[in-house]
Amino acid sequence: MNAEGMFRRQVEVALTVNGEPVEARVDAGKHLVDFLRLDLGLTGSHAGCEHGVCGACTIRVNGEIVRGCLVLTAQLDGAEVWTVEGVSETGEMRALQDAFVQRNALQCGFCTPGMLFAAAELVERGGRPSREEIREHMSGNYCRCTGYEAIIDAIEQVTSDQEGAR
């Protein structure tokens, strides 16, 4: 096997993004957030640190939340990717989004798409997590504006409404 020849600087990928098929040829080192933003114009995903700490780029790949900056686009052949634009269209995060607006759980909005994906995962697990559990689950998403309390309130509202409806 010729090792040098097999490694590609550019990689072909075919995946679905927000339910739509996408084919692209990308630089091997390009992370998913840059691909979404620069190649697809999906600017709702934000790069806050590009080293996996701030959480602003949190999105959903193959049904699980990931750090978009720590996933290479090249790895996503066949993957299913959902961004804030997509889930806003399907309406699946409507309750969380409404709660964030009502409770003013965002100020500048830069962290918000990532916050929503992190929060949605907790909401989907069901149950009525305590405030401490919500805080712990959200502890990988940085927000400089709100002081977090309104975000915790909004999520608590949604999880408690959801349980109440059962």
Partner: peptide, 11 residues
Amino acid sequence: MKATRVGYWRA
């Protein structure tokens, strides 16, 4: 920062 150039191969 953007990644240094890399080569990629999927096993």
